[in-house]
């Protein structure tokens, strides 16, 4: 019964909530009004938007030494998670068989281990920093902690699920993924998508003023 629920209705429900929620949130951003700027631009807003979208992947030289820890940990976590999500062998098979109908070459086992270590190390460092650093502690919300814990649990159960043969552990991982998908559109996890319009809107603002941001 539980297996049926997790592999069946709850899976489809969580996918629906995820996709509809993400689209709904993005529509809310894109279609909410923004007053037209009546000042005469000095430079192109569009090129500013594109420039800033890419430039923010690398911290400014002037501030880099002070923020090295969150930047390095952030990159380790995000790159590790991306690699696990799309190139871990079980995920490639799952996506091919259940969602896409086609697959690609998964990463070798050693790369999986490295990616998992990167992702775990990065996430743990970022979360500890959130708890310990006076600035992060002050500004963090309950949502930030739930999002971090939920992501950690998904990754942890994912490692457990590698013990193939145990249906229980596989189901546990899938169940936590479903919770993560349902929580995603209504949480800080949405930055996965909203960072794009955020960077571009700011870049456009700076761009029309002729500021390289």
């Amino acid at each position: 019964m539980i297996q049926y629920l997790i592999d069946g209705p709850l899976w489809y429900f969580s996918l629906a909530v995820f996709f509809i929620g993400v689209v709904w949130q993005l529509i809310a951003v894109v279609f909410t009004g923004n007053k037209a700027d009546l000042s005469v631009p000095r430079d192109s807003a569009a090129s500013g938007a594109i420039k800033t979208f890419f430039s923010r992947f690398v911290p400014h030289r002037e501030i880099a030494p002070a923020i090295m820890l969150p930047v390095v940990a952030g990159y380790m976590f995000h790159l590790g998670l991306f690699a696990l999500l799309f190139f871990a062998a079980p995920h490639v098979v799952f996506l091919e068989e259940n969602l896409l109908g086609f697959g690609w070459t998964p990463m070798p086992h050693w790369a999986f281990i490295v990616a998992a270590q990167f992702a775990f190390f990065g996430l743990i460092v970022l979360w500890l920093r959130r708890l310990v650093n006076p600035v992060s502690r002050l500004i963090s919300t309950l949502d930030d902690h739930i999002a971090a814990i939920l992501t950690f649990v998904v990754m942890l159960t994912g490692c457990f699920a590698l013990l193939e043969g145990s249906t229980g552990l596989r189901l546990l991982h899938r169940f936590t993924v479903e919770l993560w998908l349902i929580y995603f559109p209504f949480s800080a996890l949405m930055h996965t998508f909203t960072f794009v319009p955020s960077r571009m809107l700011t870049g456009a603002w700076f761009g029309r003023r002729g500021v390289d941001a």
């Binding site: 500004i139 949405m190 930055h191």
Partner: peptide, 10 residues
């Protein structure tokens, strides 16, 4: 866009 993308990194 700003509030839904801020991750409170500080």
């Amino acid at each position: 866009a700003f509030f839904s993308s801020c991750v409170r990194c500080g």
